[in-house]
Computed example of a mutant assay.
Amino acid sequence: MADWDDLKVFLAVARGESLSRAGRVLKLDAATVGRRVARLEQALDARLFTRSPQGYVLTDEGGRLVAHAEAIETAMERAAEALAGPSEGISGQIRIGAPDGCANYLLPQVVAGIVAQNPGLEVQIVALPRVFNLSRREADMVIAVSKPEQGRVIATKITDYHLHLAASDRYLREAPPLKTLADLRAHRVIGYIPDMIFDRELDYLADLGVEQPPMASNSVSVQLNLIRQGAGVGVAHDFALPAAAGVRRVLTSDFSLTRAFWLIRHADDRKLPRIERFAAALVAGMRAEMRALEGQLQDG
C-alpha cells in the first residue's frame, strides 16, 4: 500500500522529470527522492519510470497512476482547508505563470494589492516568454494570450488589451517622417524573433508585412527597452507604456491590435476555495489595472 508522502514524491518526479528538480520542489536531496520512488515502486509492484541520462520518463503504469495521485493531492488540499476552518482571507502559496509583458507591467501592482489584503498569502510570479505546462504543475494558474482548445482546464477571459506602434521622442526627432504605414520602410522595426514566437497571437508584425525585424527579442521587456533607447519603432502593449518615459504611440489611426488575456487553471482546482478566491481577486484586479493603465497614454 502506497502512502501519501511517497505519492507526493512520485508527482514531483513526474512533473519535473528528474530527481534533482523534484528534490528542489520538495526540499529533499536527490538520493532521498530516488529511494522514495524505489519504495513506491516496490509497494505497488510496478515500474513507474524509465530512467535515462535525459531524466525520468513515466512508464504506462506511471502514467495511469498520475491521475489517481492528483485526485488524492486535491483531496488532501481540500481537507487541509476544511481543517483550517472558514476564512475570508487567502493564505498559502500560489504560483502564477505569465508572459513576461504581463508579468512585468501588469501583475506586480495587482498581486501587491492582493497580498497586502491577505498577509498569510505568498505569491510567486514566473515570467517566461513561453507556454506553461499545467499538467506538470509548473504553476497553479497561468495567464495566456489564447484560450486552450483542449485539456481539463478552466479558462476565464480576464480582459482585452491593446497594442500600437510606438517610438521614443528622441527617435522621432532624428528619424525620417512617420506619417503613414508606408513610411515604415524607412525605419528600423523592432519585434519578436520569428522562430521564437510561442503563440500565433503574438505575431504582431505579420499584419505589417514585416517578416524579419532588424532588431528582435523573445522578451516584451527587451523590445520595449530597445524602443526607449531610440533603436527604432515597435509594437508595444498600451498597458506597458506608462512605465516607459519618453515613449509614445504613433500611427494609432492606421494600426491597432486587440488581444486578450485568459486565466487558465486545473479543472480540479474549482474545488479549492483558496484558489477560487485568489482567481476572482486576480481577475478583478487585472481588469481594473488595465483600465487605469490604458487610460493614461500619450500619442504622437
Rank of each mutant, 00 (worst) to 15 (best):
residue 2 A to F: 09
residue 6 D to C: 05
residue 7 L to M: 00
residue 12 A to F: 01
residue 25 V to Q: 07
residue 25 V to F: 04
residue 26 L to T: 01
residue 30 A to C: 11
residue 34 G to S: 13
residue 35 R to V: 12
residue 37 V to C: 04
residue 38 A to V: 10
residue 40 L to C: 05
residue 40 L to E: 01
residue 41 E to M: 06
residue 42 Q to T: 13
residue 43 A to L: 09
residue 49 F to H: 03
residue 52 S to T: 11
residue 52 S to V: 00
residue 58 L to M: 09
residue 59 T to N: 06
residue 60 D to P: 09
residue 63 G to V: 01
residue 66 V to F: 09
residue 67 A to K: 06
residue 68 H to S: 03
residue 69 A to F: 04
residue 70 E to R: 11
residue 71 A to C: 05
residue 74 T to A: 05
residue 77 E to R: 15
residue 81 E to Q: 09
residue 84 A to W: 07
residue 86 P to I: 13
residue 86 P to L: 12
residue 86 P to F: 08
residue 86 P to V: 12
residue 88 E to N: 15
residue 89 G to Q: 14
residue 89 G to E: 11
residue 93 Q to A: 15
residue 96 I to G: 07
residue 98 A to L: 04
residue 99 P to Q: 09
residue 102 C to W: 05
residue 105 Y to Q: 02
residue 107 L to I: 03
residue 109 Q to I: 05
residue 112 A to S: 05
residue 113 G to Y: 03
residue 114 I to H: 02
residue 116 A to G: 05
residue 118 N to T: 14
residue 119 P to A: 03
residue 119 P to R: 02
residue 120 G to K: 06
residue 121 L to Q: 02
residue 124 Q to E: 13
residue 127 A to P: 02
residue 130 R to W: 03
residue 130 R to Y: 05
residue 134 L to G: 00
residue 144 A to T: 06
residue 144 A to G: 07
residue 145 V to F: 10
residue 148 P to A: 02
residue 149 E to V: 14
residue 149 E to I: 14
residue 150 Q to R: 14
residue 150 Q to K: 13
residue 153 V to T: 03
residue 153 V to C: 00
residue 162 H to T: 04
residue 168 S to L: 04
residue 170 R to A: 15
residue 170 R to D: 14
residue 172 L to W: 09
residue 175 A to P: 09
residue 175 A to Q: 08
residue 177 P to I: 12
residue 178 L to Y: 08
residue 179 K to Y: 08
residue 180 T to R: 14
residue 184 L to Y: 12
residue 185 R to A: 15
residue 186 A to L: 15
residue 190 I to L: 07
residue 191 G to R: 04
residue 193 I to M: 10
residue 194 P to W: 10
residue 196 M to V: 12
residue 197 I to G: 09
residue 198 F to C: 13
residue 198 F to N: 09
residue 204 Y to F: 15
residue 206 A to N: 07
residue 207 D to W: 11
residue 209 G to A: 01
residue 210 V to R: 07
residue 211 E to P: 00
residue 212 Q to G: 00
residue 215 M to S: 10
residue 224 L to G: 02
residue 225 N to W: 08
residue 230 G to Y: 07
residue 233 V to F: 02
residue 235 V to N: 02
residue 237 H to T: 05
residue 241 L to M: 08
residue 242 P to V: 04
residue 242 P to T: 02
residue 243 A to Q: 10
residue 248 R to I: 07
residue 250 V to K: 05
residue 251 L to V: 03
residue 252 T to K: 01
residue 258 T to M: 06
residue 261 F to K: 01
residue 263 L to D: 10
residue 267 A to L: 09
residue 267 A to M: 06
residue 267 A to W: 01
residue 268 D to Y: 04
residue 269 D to M: 06
residue 275 I to C: 13
residue 275 I to T: 15
residue 276 E to N: 12
residue 286 M to A: 02
residue 290 M to A: 04
residue 294 E to I: 09
residue 299 D to V: 13
residue 300 G to I: 13
